[in-house]
């Protein structure tokens, strides 16, 4: 579904991601784990086109997207839920969702989104900035889903979210994968969440993957030791 080859990304003189290679299978949930500052967010920003890559290739299906602008990548089928949600605070909930849509949105699409996140239906006329952190996270996922992506990319979706909502988000991700048959990449530091949702995990350290394991081959303690300073 997504194939990344020799991807190098950096800021100014410094390189953050070093000739990275990985692929994402159809309908797979891939967790990318690592401590702060190891390059998780940089990698995801590069996938969505917020940060330009210095070299390498990003294939979405058969299409090379590494040279495209962000909005063109979204139209190609990749959607992004950023760290810190970045919802539009002065737009209403329904307007926030609409910003992710191309063309008219069918009633069935609204129904699907609101079935997944019922609280957003209740809050649909409220300003996005007046929602709680957990509600904003659900809104950011809904905004990404309305573009009908083939690949959904989430950057630390549990950051600053209360535990009960974290479980809701995990449930929603599994539901999204099975209902829409899409692949998901999620960066995470919360081990329990990762163990709950992923099929495979990659551990990133200083811009390189240092460990890869399927979910079945991982234990929470093993992951914690890999993430320990």
């Amino acid at each position: 579904m997504l194939t990344v080859s020799n991807l190098t990304v950096g800021y100014g003189q410094s390189r953050v991601i070093h000739e990275m290679n990985f692929s994402l299978r159809a309908e797979e949930i891939l967790a990318i784990m690592g401590r702060n500052g190891m390059g998780k967010t940089t990698l995801l920003k590069s996938l969505i086109g917020i940060l330009p890559s210095r070299q390498g290739s990003i294939l979405l299906g058969d299409k090379e997207i590494s040279g495209l602008a962000s909005h063109e990548r979204v139209r190609s089928g990749i959607a992004f839920v950023p760290q810190g949600r970045m919802i539009f605070p002065a737009l209403t909930v329904s307007e926030n969702i609409l910003t992710g849509a191309r063309g008219p949105v069918e009633k069935s699409a609204w129904d699907e989104i609101y079935a997944l996140f019922p609280i957003l239906h209740e809050m649909r006329k409220r300003k996005g900035g007046n929602l709680s952190g957990g509600q904003q996270q659900q809104l950011a996922i809904a905004r990404a889903l309305i573009s009908n992506p083939k690949v959904l990319v989430l950057d630390e979706p549990t950051e600053g979210i209360q535990p009960s909502i974290i479980k809701d988000i995990a449930r929603a991700l599994r539901q999204i994968r099975s209902a829409r048959k899409i692949a998901i990449i999620v960066t995470e530091q919360v081990v329990s969440f990762m163990m709950d949702v992923c099929d495979r995990a990659l551990v990133i350290e200083r811009g390189r993957f240092v460990h890869e394991a399927p979910r079945e081959g991982l234990s929470a303690d093993q992951v914690r030791s890999l993430l320990a300073v």
Binding site: V74, F80, P82, G100, A144
Partner: peptide
């Protein structure tokens, strides 16, 4: 209108608007 919505979104967060699929240019 949709373009009006895109204008308001771009004002609030240009980078995120692009990442949401809006052609900000």
């Amino acid at each position: 209108s949709r373009i009006g919505l895109q204008m308001r979104a771009t004002v609030q967060n240009r980078v995120m608007s692009g990442a949401a699929g809006i052609n900000t240019r």
